[in-house]
Nucleic acid binder design. Structure first.
Length: 519
RNA sequence: GGGCCGUUAGCUCAGCUGGUAGAGCAGUGGACUUUUAAUCCAUUGGUCGCGAGUUCAAAUCUCGCACGGCCCA
């Protein structure tokens, strides 16, 4: 097949007249000797720079100075009125609040008049379509209604867009299309772009916070021979050359703690985890996790660090009030980050929710019956796991304000250090906000014998049918045998943190390309 | 996995108890030299998600499937 035949086959796939008209313009541009897909363009000003430089100048000042600018962006609005025309361009700085009155569309306006650009360029204007990416040279001016604009002297086609953009006013609102074609969603929806700018700010603030505390950012394997560090089912894959099974990681924990053994006393990683579970508003198969570990620290140090970090991070999104407190609305509720955050023992919370005395939770029969009534499959649960089930089903969703849930059962925490006052419990907390788990932290188990025993207990649970139980990781135990300093570590779900701080209802609203079934 | 809802023009949506599809925006042609979702006149555009069934007749009723949303597990 020749190149022309392939192109023709490509074009035959479109039966939409708008696309066909635009494709004809591509041909016309080529015939006229201009490329519809230009090779670079040197820009002197972004839209924001135009406003920063000349936003306060009067029409007379602008006319006198004749400030030359070269701008570029996507054509979003086009109004032609006889021998004059207005174009509105969007570039990366065209975001909410770029400018104020008279028009508040956040675009940069370009003014073209036949008298100043001549017939050739003015005729060429008529071949432009909404969505095209244009380069404009001109000088700054203010229109009759006072809008700062670029008076064009030259307009260059940089990229011809052959598909029409959605309705200029209603935009793209179909949720499925927004996720599948995020590139269109990002063009059309300011709020969507804003969420992802905020996401980047949040992650930068976390890095900055940890970097200032002498934490080292590292990268550990995404493909594990032994999937560990969390209770979850992994995605399996296969290495052809080595002919071996590999798993996409469910957590980086065991590798980061190996680094503690190696003397990297403060490490963190912000990267993807993969869990082979269902999709929901709160779950995407791949999601981003921050994990950090600090030698010589305890779980209580982690609580303080968490309050400090999340307040600092939240302050980049929500301005603190006069008292220095951060309060914001999410899911129609006011969330207060005012410190200190509440601490709640797990059994205390469960007893309260059940309306019983905490001592009653020691009664195994009572616990089993309560868990069964709550809808848990109690068949192969031990006492600790039943308590966790009751917590998840009866308490979790009630924890709206930041709450550290403490005193987790050891059987549900195979990598955490036992409490000195009660070896049935571990030095661990989970942070809940808006009824969702946001962070999980504990003092690390560094006793290789206990760790081996806990892995062995996990193997027994797996044999008993618990498919989320962890496998034995012999090399990790070997690492502990060399000596891991006392340490504490924590994981924070980045997607959920972004959801909280941007008041996004679905994890798909904070992941650029969420997982979708094939079309 | 279960329940409910949705899928109609490029986009946003109408379309009643069945009678073979409409609007706004976008597009096309025309008027207009300072517009702000510009305006005005004219106009093109549809495998009604896919597949069966009922019927003289299906976007509409029934069943199945696909994709998505919400809720539950």
């Amino acid at each position: 097949m020749s190149h022309d035949q392939r192109i023709s086959a490509y074009r035959d796939r479109f039966d939409n007249h708008i696309v066909q008209e635009r494709v004809a313009k591509v041909d016309a541009l080529r015939e006229a000797g201009t490329s519809p897909f230009a090779n670079g363009f040197e820009v002197s000003h972004t839209a924001a720079q135009v406003y920063a430089e000349a936003g306060s100048m009067t029409a007379e000042e602008l006319a006198e100075r004749a400030i030359p600018v070269t701008v570029a962006g996507r054509l979003r609005l086009f109004r032609q009125m006889g021998k004059a025309a207005f174009l509105k361009l969007a570039d990366r700085t065209c975001r909410e609040g770029l400018k104020g009155a008279p028009s508040d569309d956040n675009f940069l306006q370009v003014f073209v008049s036949l008298g100043s650009v001549g017939q050739e360029l003015f005729d060429r204007l008529l071949t432009f379509d909404l969505g095209d990416i244009l380069g404009v040279r001109g000088t700054l001016m203010r229109t009759k209604t006072g809008e700062l604009s670029v008076a064009a002297t030259e307009i260059i086609m940089l990229t011809k867009s052959i598909r029409p953009l959605p309705d200029k006013f209603k935009g793209l609102s179909d949720v499925e299309q927004r996720y599948r074609m995020r590139y269109v969603d990002l063009v059309m929806n300011d709020e969507v772009r804003e969420v992802f700018y905020k996401r980047t700010r949040i992650v930068s603030a976390i890095r900055s916070f940890l970097d200032r505390r002498d934490y080292l950012e590292v990268e550990t394997p995404m493909m594990h021979a032994t999937p560990g560090g969390a209770a979850a089912r992994p995605f399996a894959t296969h290495h052809n050359a080595l002919n071996m099974q590999l798993f996409m990681r469910i957590a980086p924990e065991l590798y980061l703690k190996r680094l503690l053994v190696g003397g990297m006393e403060r490490v963190y990683e912000i990267n993807r985890n993969f869990r082979n579970e269902g999709l929901s508003r709160k779950h995407n198969p791949e999601f981003t996790m921050l994990e950090f570990y600090q030698a010589y620290a305890t779980w209580e140090d982690m609580m303080h660090l968490t309050e400090e970090m999340l307040c600092e991070v939240a302050a980049t999104i929500h301005t603190p009030n006069e008292a220095g407190e951060i309060r914001f609305i999410a899911e129609e509720q006011e969330v207060s980050f005012a410190r200190p955050w509440r601490r709640l023992r797990m059994s205390e919370g469960v007893a309260e929710a059940l309306g019983v005395d905490e001592a009653q939770l020691d009664d195994l029969d009572f616990l089993r019956e309560a868990a069964r009534k709550a809808g848990a499959d109690v068949a192969r649960l031990d006492k600790g796991k039943m308590l966790v089930e009751l917590f998840e089903r009866r308490v979790e969703h009630t924890l709206i304000q930041p709450t550290f849930v403490v005193d987790f059962p050891a059987s549900a925490s195979p990598l955490a250090r036992r409490k000195e006052s009660n070896p049935e419990l571990v030095d661990r907390f989970e942070l809940y906000v808006l009824g969702r788990e946001l962070a999980n932290a504990f003092s690390e188990l560094n006793d290789p014998e206990d760790q081996y025993g806990r892995f062995a207990a996990q193997l027994e649970a797996k044999a008993g049918g618990d498919d989320e139980a962890m496998p034995m990781d012999e090399d990790y135990v070997r690492a502990l045998e060399y000596g891991m300093p006392p340490a504490a570590g924590e994981g924070i779900g980045i997607d959920r943190l972004v959801m909280l701080l941007t008041d996004s209802a679905s994890i798909r609203d904070v992941i650029l390309f969420p997982h979708m079934r094939p079309e």
